[in-house]
Simulated assay, not measured.
Amino acid sequence: MDCKCHLLFGRCMLKICWQQLADFHQVGNLLKPVNERLTAPTASELMHVSASPGYCERNDASGIPGAVGRRCNVTSEGKEACSVITCCDRGYDISQVTLETQCGCKEQLKENVKCKLCPWTVDQFACK
């Protein structure tokens, strides 16, 4: 617990307390006697206080949509790639979707353009 006192005329008028983590060095000193083989972390090691949330599984309480159905791109190497990380090592499904796009556009009179709608089939990829 840590507390702060709001002073008025040198007297504590309001004391507010909250829970917080203990001093990092105090925790380390307490842990070290428990395991004498415990060594200091190197500069390349990551340290964390709490477990990271799992982004592969849906978790409505945390607002995590999960990986199932996540759109991905098989030709990309970026964050949208259908990689082990993006699809949580589950692979991906392929579906073909037909879209319509404007084509064969011709100018009709002044500033009036008329186009046809042409079908266009594309592959879409989504994480399993």
Rank of each mutant, 00 (worst) to 15 (best):
M13D: 11
M13K: 11
M13R: 14
L14P: 00
L14N: 11
L14W: 04
K15G: 01
C17N: 10
C17P: 09
C17F: 11
C17A: 08
W18N: 05
Q19I: 05
Q20W: 01
Q20K: 14
D23F: 05
D23R: 04
F24K: 09
F24C: 01
H25N: 14
H25Q: 14
H25Y: 08
H25E: 14
Q26L: 11
Q26V: 09
N29L: 12
N29P: 00
N29K: 15
N29W: 03
L30I: 03
L30W: 09
L31C: 13
V34C: 10
N35C: 10
N35Y: 10
R37I: 03
R37G: 04
L38F: 10
T39G: 13
A40Y: 07
A40D: 08
P41Q: 05
P41L: 07
P41Y: 03
T42R: 11
T42C: 06
A43Y: 05
S44D: 15
S44Q: 15
L46R: 09
L46N: 10
L46K: 11
M47N: 11
H48D: 03
V49N: 10
V49S: 13
S50L: 15
S52I: 06
P53I: 12
Y55N: 02
Y55Q: 01
Y55M: 05
C56M: 05
R58M: 04
R58N: 03
N59L: 05
N59S: 12
N59T: 04
D60N: 12
D60F: 01
A61T: 12
A61V: 07
A61Q: 14
A61D: 15
S62E: 15
I64V: 09
P65Q: 04
P65H: 04
V68G: 01
V68P: 00
G69H: 05
R70T: 13
R71T: 06
R71I: 03
N73P: 00
V74H: 06
T75C: 01
T75Y: 04
T75L: 06
T75H: 08
S76T: 03
S76A: 15
S76Q: 03
E77S: 12
C82S: 02
C82L: 02
C82D: 00
S83T: 08
V84E: 13
I85V: 11
I85M: 12
I85A: 14
T86D: 00
C87N: 04
C88S: 05
D89L: 01
D89A: 14
G91Y: 04
Y92H: 13
D93E: 11
D93K: 10
I94W: 00
I94T: 15
S95H: 08
Q96N: 13
Q96I: 13
V97S: 05
V97M: 10
T98A: 04
T98H: 02
E100S: 03
C103P: 08
G104H: 12
G104D: 13
G104A: 06
C105Q: 10
C105S: 13
C105F: 08
K106R: 15
E107M: 13
Q108W: 06
